[in-house]
Simulated assay, not measured.
Amino acid sequence: MLTELLHGADTGGFLVIQDSTSCSGRHLLESFISAALNREEAVHVLGFDVSEEELTGGLKGSAIERLHFHNAYTDPLGWTDQPSLTLHQFCSEELSHLLKPTSHSKSTILVIDSLSWILRHVNPPAVCKTLHQLRKGGAVRAIIALLHADMHQRGTVGSVCHLASSVIKVAPGMKGDETVAKITKRSKSGKVVQDEEIFSIKEDLSVTVHSKRSQPGLKQTETEEQEADPTANLTFNLRLSDTEREAKEKLALPFVFSKEKKSALLHSGPGSGRILYEPDANDDYDQEDPDDDLDV
Results as ranks from 00 to 15, higher is better:
residue 218 L to Y: 12
residue 139 A to D: 03
residue 289 D to P: 02
residue 6 L to D: 09
residue 111 V to M: 00
residue 9 A to N: 08
residue 275 I to P: 02
residue 65 E to K: 11
residue 275 I to G: 03
residue 82 Q to L: 10
residue 134 L to T: 00
residue 258 S to H: 03
residue 191 K to C: 07
residue 102 T to D: 12
residue 180 V to M: 11
residue 42 A to N: 11
residue 130 T to L: 03
residue 181 A to I: 03
residue 132 H to Y: 09
residue 72 A to I: 03
residue 234 L to W: 13
residue 8 G to Q: 14
residue 238 L to M: 10
residue 194 Q to F: 07
residue 223 T to N: 15
residue 170 V to A: 02
residue 281 A to D: 14
residue 241 S to W: 12
residue 229 D to Y: 13
residue 91 C to G: 07
residue 243 T to H: 15
residue 23 C to D: 10
residue 237 N to K: 10
residue 33 I to G: 04
residue 210 H to R: 07
residue 172 P to G: 06
residue 168 I to Q: 01
residue 91 C to I: 08
residue 197 E to T: 14
residue 239 R to I: 10
residue 156 T to M: 01
residue 173 G to L: 03
residue 77 L to P: 02
residue 65 E to D: 15
residue 170 V to K: 00
residue 57 G to K: 12
residue 126 A to Q: 08
residue 81 D to Y: 06
residue 92 S to R: 05
residue 83 P to G: 01
residue 157 V to T: 02
residue 27 H to V: 06
residue 77 L to Y: 13
residue 291 D to G: 09
residue 77 L to N: 11
residue 32 F to R: 05
residue 231 T to V: 07
residue 37 L to C: 14
residue 10 D to F: 03
residue 84 S to E: 06
residue 90 F to S: 00
residue 277 Y to C: 09
residue 56 T to W: 04
residue 269 G to P: 02
residue 32 F to S: 07
residue 223 T to V: 15
residue 173 G to P: 02
residue 212 K to V: 10
residue 253 L to S: 14
residue 91 C to K: 05
residue 221 T to H: 12
residue 142 A to W: 02
residue 27 H to K: 08
residue 247 A to C: 12
residue 281 A to F: 13
residue 254 P to H: 01
residue 191 K to E: 14
residue 58 G to W: 04
residue 92 S to Q: 06
residue 125 P to D: 14
residue 277 Y to I: 09
residue 235 T to F: 08
residue 16 V to W: 01
residue 58 G to R: 06
residue 270 P to V: 02
residue 114 S to A: 02
residue 60 K to Y: 11
residue 280 D to T: 10
residue 84 S to H: 09
residue 183 I to N: 00
